[in-house]
Amino acid sequence: MEELEINTEFITLGQILKMTDAISSGGMAKWFLEEHVVYVNDEEEKRRGKKLRDGDIVNIPGVGKYKVNGIPNGQTDVH
């Protein structure tokens, strides 16, 4: 399983599809999710706008399995 580092509270499923090179442009996300099965935390997901947060697992069959590593609970490093 690969890890995807983000520096925000969340990332959308469509953005992850682009980051992992499953699609070449953000506009392809809707088509990709209509034609392929993608799992988020072992449940099928079809919404390209689905917010993925720290600890979520994304499985894109034929592409790879990824764990989102981000800012837990929206916390920031403010001192």
Rank of each mutant, 00 (worst) to 15 (best):
K51T: 01
E9N: 14
I23W: 09
K50F: 08
D42V: 00
T76G: 14
H36T: 00
E43G: 00
E45Q: 15
S24H: 11
K67M: 14
P61S: 08
G55H: 03
I60V: 12
K65M: 13
M1L: 11
P61V: 10
K51G: 01
V38L: 06
W31A: 12
D42M: 04
D42E: 15
L4S: 05
K65F: 03
V63R: 03
R53S: 05
L33A: 08
S24K: 15
V78D: 13
E2H: 13
L52G: 04
V37D: 12
G55Q: 07
E44Q: 15
P72G: 11
V40A: 13
V40H: 09
N69Y: 02
P72V: 10
N69L: 15
H36F: 00
L17S: 02
M19Q: 13
L13C: 03
E45H: 02
A22C: 04
Y66Q: 12
V37R: 03
Q15R: 14
D21W: 07
E5C: 01
I6F: 08
K30C: 00
I57L: 15
I11F: 06
T12P: 07
V58L: 03
F10E: 06
E43V: 12
E3F: 07
V40C: 10
N7W: 07
Y39H: 12
V68P: 02
L13M: 06
D56E: 04
D54N: 15
E5K: 15
E5H: 11
T12N: 11
I57Q: 14
P61Y: 08
L4P: 01
K51C: 04
L17E: 05
K46T: 14
G70P: 11
D54L: 04
V37K: 10
G62T: 03
W31E: 12
G62C: 01
E34T: 11
E44H: 01
G14K: 12
R53C: 08
G62Y: 00
N41F: 06
S24D: 13
I57S: 07
N59H: 14
K51M: 09
K18W: 06
N7D: 14
T12W: 02
K46G: 00
K46V: 10
E35N: 14
W31M: 07
E45F: 01
E5L: 12
R47K: 14
D42F: 08
I23L: 10
E43M: 13
E2T: 08
L13K: 04
K51Y: 01
Y39M: 15
D77H: 05
F32M: 04
W31S: 09
T20K: 04
V68R: 06
D54K: 01
